[in-house]
Structure formats: structure tokens, C-alpha cells
Design a protein around this nucleic acid. Structure first.
Lengths: 203, 203
DNA sequence: AAGGTTGTTGACCGACCGGTAAACTATGGG
DNA sequence: CCCATAGTTTACCGGTCGGTCAACAACCTT
């Protein structure tokens, strides 16, 4: 098995960066190749289409983030602290991205999903899969918080979906307004939404 | 002043429909013209660019919806009922659109804003303006509800932004999942987020 | 009826899009 | 050493993109 190359990885990274910064439709294969330092021939050696590249790039992007998620949502951490840590982590990440490219970029999965999820079945499926994985972290933290009497959430799944909606909506707003301040109080808002303060107060 | 035409309006309507169904980037000027029953020459007689068409179409779309908003958010209606009515109205609208074109389409402003708000300044500005107008309805309803002791929301603007985030996030999720069920309990979730139930219970 | 304005039409443009093909090069295993 | 395999390079393709233009048709005003 001769000659190994990291061009495939470079292409996926370049694609995620460019698509996240702008969007899927206006990110050309040429631009991806240029950013990755590869020629178009190489692109189509590794991927059979732009759509397939997107699917694989999304998966690779998630896998890169997964370790951090597992750490943040570790069962050894009190459930509401997991959420606090996660939202603070997101805020830090968005702030960093804003510093680097001058724009708040929001959630790539959500943006891509809204843009082409209805038109490209494979990408839509991939986005759904990733967002679902993400929601599961929320769900389990909420279930644990309920079990420990920190909040009242008999239907953890429904609560998690509400929280995801609030979270994704905040990211979308931040992207549209290009303002990270929308994300500063993400953790506070999330706990408020879950009724954590109320519970603590009444306890 | 000879010859009036409704081609401009037809073009704007066609553009909104197509962009809402798919997205801005993959809606071509040709497709808009075909749907509107106009030729490209006419298009560029009324609009100087695709971007300008989008800005004007967004404005026209909002103006069309404004009357309904003013009615739903009438000061003669109890503040929390305004929100209930609005979210039920949105649910009905999304369900209707789903029946007509087989897909949940979410919020056009938010989708367009996420897609090209960062790349096209004029469109981004227009989206921000419209979303801000929308939020103001929420804000005033929340302020009234607070004044009447229905909820506790000393910072009405912050609460409105939370509600908008939850609302837009729910619409985005519904679009991505292509599932209107995500929107069925919008009103319930919104009131829960505002702490309306709690207030009523403690009262 | 004339003339200026408003709107319509179809042919056309260069740029760029996603994707292809084939020749070429590097490299590790036998 | 040599050859199969993996990866690279270059040139190229048809189609579509947003946008232009000039000739033409309808209409209101005077």
C-alpha cells in the first residue's frame, strides 16, 4: 500500500472552514482545493462529489469535537454544571472564531441543515444525525438533573428539545447579528429555561 | 405615466416562494423569472441585481404579514393570549406550507440571514431589520404581561430575545427535521419559558 | 395623432460552476 | 529492482450563472 497522503483530511478541513464561514452553496470546489493546497483532480480522487465531501467533512468535524463533548458531559460532573461548562465552551469557541475571521459563525450543522437539508438528502441526513447526537448529551444531563431533584423535568426528551431550540436559536441570532453578546448569557438562560433557579430558590 | 405592470410584484412573490422553499444561493434568476412568467430583461428593468430583488422581496413579504401581526398583537388582547395566538398562527401556517409543498420551511428571514447575511450586507441588514421588528411585538407583549403580574420579567427585552431564540430555534429544527410536530407545543413551551404556569400556580 | 415614458422581449456575454479523463509520479511490497 | 497501487497534475467539458443590450410594444398625456 504505497504513498499515504493527508490531502483528504486537508480537503475536509478546508471545506468545513469555508462552508462555516460562508455557506455550502457559495463555497466552490475550486476554493476548497485552493485552501487545501490540492488540485481538483485530487479532490475527485477522494470524493465522488461535492455533496459527499460535505457529508464526510461534517462527520469528521463531529468526531473531532466528540472527545471534548464526552469530557464536558462526563457523568462525574454534576449535571447542571455540564450544561454550564458546555455553554461557556461554546461561547469561548464562538468568541475565538469571531476574533479570527471577524464574524460570529453560529452552528455549522444548523446552518448547513437549513440551507440544503431539504435539497440534498445525504447532507440532510448527516446533519440530522449529528444534531441528534448532540441533543442526547443535553437529554442525559437533564435526566440526571431531574433524578437529583435539581430541576423538574419528567419528560427529559421534550425538555432537551426545548433547550436545543433555545441554543440553536441563540446561535442563529448571534450569526445574523454578528454579535457574540447574544451568547454570553447562554448558560444563565438555559438554566432559567430549565427552571433551575426556581428549584434552588424553593429548596 | 403610461402602462402599469404587476410584473414587479409577481417577481418578488416568486422570489420569496422559491427562496423560502430552497434557499437564496440555489434560486436562480432564471427560475424566478419563469415562475413569475416574466423574462430576464423585465427582471433587470425592475431590479438592478438579484441581491436588490431579495431585499425588496423581503420587505414586501414583511409588509404583507404586518397587518396580521398588528391584529394578533392587538393591545386589546391579553398579553399572553397574543403570544398563544401568534404561535398557533405560525403552527397553522407551517402546517399549511407543509401540505402544499411537502416540506416544513421554517422562518425565511432566519434562513436567509444565516445563509447570506454575512456575505451580502444589504440582505443582512434587511433581515436584521425585519427580525427586530418581529421581536418588538414579543417585547411589548412580555412587558404588558409583566405589568399585569402574569409573569415576572423585569427585563422585557432580554426575555423577548430569549423567546425569539427559542422560537427561531424551533423553526430551524422543524425545517431540518421536516417535522411540524416540533411546532405543535410552541405556545406551551413559550409560556413555560416565560414562567407563566409557575406564576399562575403561585397566584 | 404624436411623442415620451414605461415595460417587454430575445439574443447574447464572459465567468464560473461541478465534474471528467488521461497521463504522470511517487512509493512500498515482492 | 520492478511493478502494482495510490496519489497528483493538467487540460478540458458542457451547462448554468448573474447580468447586458438594443430593438420593440403598449400606454398616457398633450
Amino acid at each position: 500500500m504505497p504513498r499515504q497522503s493527508d490531502a483528504e483530511e486537508r480537503l475536509m478541513n478546508a471545506a468545513m472552514d469555508l462552508i462555516w464561514e460562508s455557506n455550502y452553496g457559495s463555497t466552490s470546489v475550486d476554493a476548497i482545493c485552493e485552501k487545501a493546497g490540492a488540485k481538483k483532480g485530487s479532490f475527485y480522487h477522494f470524493f465522488e462529489s461535492k455533496s459527499e465531501l460535505a457529508v464526510k467533512a461534517l462527520e469528521a468535524d463531529w468526531q473531532r469535537k466528540k472527545a471534548r463533548m464526552d469530557e464536558i458531559f462526563s457523568a462525574s460532573v454534576p449535571p447542571l454544571d455540564r450544561l454550564r461548562k458546555y455553554f461557556d465552551h461554546v461561547y469561548a469557541g464562538q468568541t475565538k472564531a469571531h476574533g479570527e475571521c471577524g464574524a460570529v459563525l453560529g452552528c455549522p450543522y444548523c446552518s448547513i441543515g437549513c440551507e440544503i437539508g431539504t435539497r440534498d438528502r445525504a447532507i440532510g441526513e448527516q446533519v440530522r444525525k449529528i444534531l441528534d447526537r448532540n441533543a442526547k448529551y443535553f437529554e442525559s444531563a437533564i435526566r440526571d438533573a431531574h433524578a437529583q431533584g435539581l430541576i423538574s423535568a419528567p419528560d427529559a426528551k421534550a425538555k432537551a428539545q426545548m433547550l436545543v431550540a433555545f441554543f440553536q436559536g441563540s446561535l442563529a441570532q448571534a450569526r445574523i447579528e454578528n454579535d457574540v453578546r447574544r451568547l454570553r448569557d447562554l448558560a444563565k438562560g438555559a438554566l432559567e429555561l430549565l427552571g433551575a433557579e426556581r428549584q434552588r430558590a424553593t429548596k
